[in-house]
Design a protein around this nucleic acid. Sequence first.
DNA 1: CGAATCCTTGAGTAATTTCAAGACTGGTGG
DNA 2: CCACCAGTCTTGAAATTACTCAAGGATTCG
Lengths: 248, 248
Amino acid sequence: MTRIATLSETRDNCHNCRLRTLCLPDNLPEEDVGRLAGIVQRRKLVSRGTLLFQAGQRFSSIYAVRTGAVKTTALMANGDEHISGFHLPGDVIGLDAIVSRDHPSTAVALENASVCEIPYAELETLSDRTPALQHQLMRIMSRELLAEQGTNQLLTRRSAEQRLAVVLLTFSERFASRGLSAQRFRLPMSRLDLGNYLGLVPETMSRTFRRLEGQGLVSIAGKEVEIVDICAMQGLAFGAQGAQAARA
Amino acid sequence: MTRIATLSETRDNCHNCRLRTLCLPDNLPEEDVGRLAGIVQRRKLVSRGTLLFQAGQRFSSIYAVRTGAVKTTALMANGDEHISGFHLPGDVIGLDAIVSRDHPSTAVALENASVCEIPYAELETLSDRTPALQHQLMRIMSRELLAEQGTNQLLTRRSAEQRLAVVLLTFSERFASRGLSAQRFRLPMSRLDLGNYLGLVPETMSRTFRRLEGQGLVSIAGKEVEIVDICAMQGLAFGAQGAQAARA
DNA sequence: CGAATCCTTGAGTAATTTCAAGACTGGTGG
DNA sequence: CCACCAGTCTTGAAATTACTCAAGGATTCG
């Protein structure tokens, strides 16, 4: 294989990517996908526990997860770490650094992962003359905004059971939209991390998992999750009890 | 005054706007500010309680608050309303609608307000050939993302006292950055709304306000707030107690 | 001025946290 | 290949915090 062929295989492959419709190339005409692929540095390997970027570091690139899973954490004012999100293949990370030009959060691989790095300066330049790319970027930012709002709702006046039910259903959907099973999946993070994300201590996480299992809603074996009764889960997650009515 | 002069007064005024540095025109060269002003419909009046847009409505414009205050609310799956944010002059509203092309949330004026309406299709067209505007849009989206992450942290394992302290300090900063007093200000929303936003019932809000007052940190008279001891407030808001340590 | 909404206060209840300690797990090295 | 180690997870009992329910009082707006 010649050097050029290798280069092309390494860099110019967004249109073959399984995750295309979840990621930056979605909604882009073929020619623009090619141009985008030209600036994407593919197949960066990040082994479990390794930092993709660190809070305070100068912002230079955004990243798209290819395989594996990544968590982003932020140091709260009181010194504690708070997990702001879990990122699966197709998700774009680092967009919160655009304003300040420094990363406000740290990204850590939860398992061996591979990511695409997209230098932001080049992306900006390219999107200046590629309206479709620009629009897709705006859509992705808007999507992230929506996801954060969803997290806010999740954390607001919901019981531990409801929070866990919602987050499990959310993962179920996210796995399904990546072609995996919606019923059975493996959570990529520890209970500790999930609890941190949900605002619950590990003890409560443990007890809550057990309670859901006792109600026959899920079946848990370590990090393996099976959603047994999805309807009942939805009923619990989105049921009327547990939150006040607040009229506009 | 000729018709053209009137038109110009109504539409072409972003560079004189006091809020310029907080809003879309920030970081824009003068000529681009003029072009932006050309598509901005200024001085829409929204009286207290009036909807700026409603969840489910077709998305067509984003809005910038000029005077007054606006809250955005979203209907949670269980039917309850959740307040996702309070918006002061200079804030841009509606960016969460870009992905789906329908508004996911409702915007209501908390007091008589005026806003600038910016038709999104025109903004998109303009920014396609105005890189600086595009970059500013990205910065604003990124800023919003950061703000939502901050809200998430606020809601995660913090006591009622801490939440209230944080939100009061945040308003203090926001008023200060708009040229108003950081010590004394009038909250534009009811305790009910603030409680909904913070995930606390009105009774807890009332008791928590009283407790902060009892500690000599603030002085409250209706919606008027005076921050008496800002250092102690920061100590309370960002102090180490009240949240677990979670290591990466 | 009067209705409606908002705010406050008290007492009791339910939920999660804290503290403490033991069991499991996966990865490492002998 | 097995034993060990550190981190993770589980379990129980007590403490704390915010919620619920109930009712009276204060504002605000029309």
